[in-house]
């Protein structure tokens, strides 16, 4: 499990460029993940690797192809100082876990990393990093493994009653 480190404002065009959006299959999308900005990613990424970034990860377009490309590449966790709103929701919905970490900037590229989601910590380069929990109203969806599974098990639509 290794760290693929990125900077601030990683936009969804960087994660998966517009010309590949006719592809809907995660594995095929993964072949083009970060193609323009980090060409070695697609061939080097291993199952279980973690993407780590600075502020505003996933800004820009609403394309769900972005979290799908990461999932197809075997990345199931993204740790960032903060996330753009639509990407964050898309990630939760598709089963990619977006975790906020105030010290994400300190995590180094290429280092090994272990994420303990139950304890809410990540260990990398001899240090332990605290991860913020996903907001409670989204946890049910995370537990279900995404919005599709959540919806399948929905007995009744909790219209305007709030999810908490």
């Amino acid at each position: 499990m290794k760290v693929w480190k990125f900077g601030n404002d990683v936009d969804t065009d960087a994660i998966i460029p517009g010309r590949f959006l006719t592809i809907n299959d995660p594995d095929e999308l993964a072949e083009h993940a970060f193609e323009g900005v980090r060409p070695e990613f697609a061939s080097g990424v291993q199952k279980g690797d973690v993407v780590v970034a600075g502020r505003n990860f996933g800004c820009g377009s609403s394309r769900e192809h972005a979290p799908l490309a990461l999932l197809g590449a075997g990345v199931h966790i993204v740790i960032a100082r903060s996330f753009a709103r639509i990407f964050y929701r898309n990630a939760i919905n598709t089963g990619l876990l977006p975790l906020v970490c105030g010290e994400a900037d300190e995590i180094e590229d290429g280092n090994g990393i272990e994420v303990d989601t139950a304890k809410g910590v990540a260990r990398s380069g001899e240090k332990e990093y605290v991860l913020e929990p996903v907001p409670s109203f989204l946890q049910e969806i995370v537990r279900a493994g995404g919005l599709v599974e959540y919806a399948k098990n929905l007995k009744e639509l909790p219209l305007c009653t709030g999810l908490e």
């Binding site: 609403s62 769900e64 639509i86 598709t94």
Partner: peptide, 8 residues
Amino acid sequence: GIGSTDMG
């Protein structure tokens, strides 16, 4: 704006 799963 929302993603495709939300839209589903």
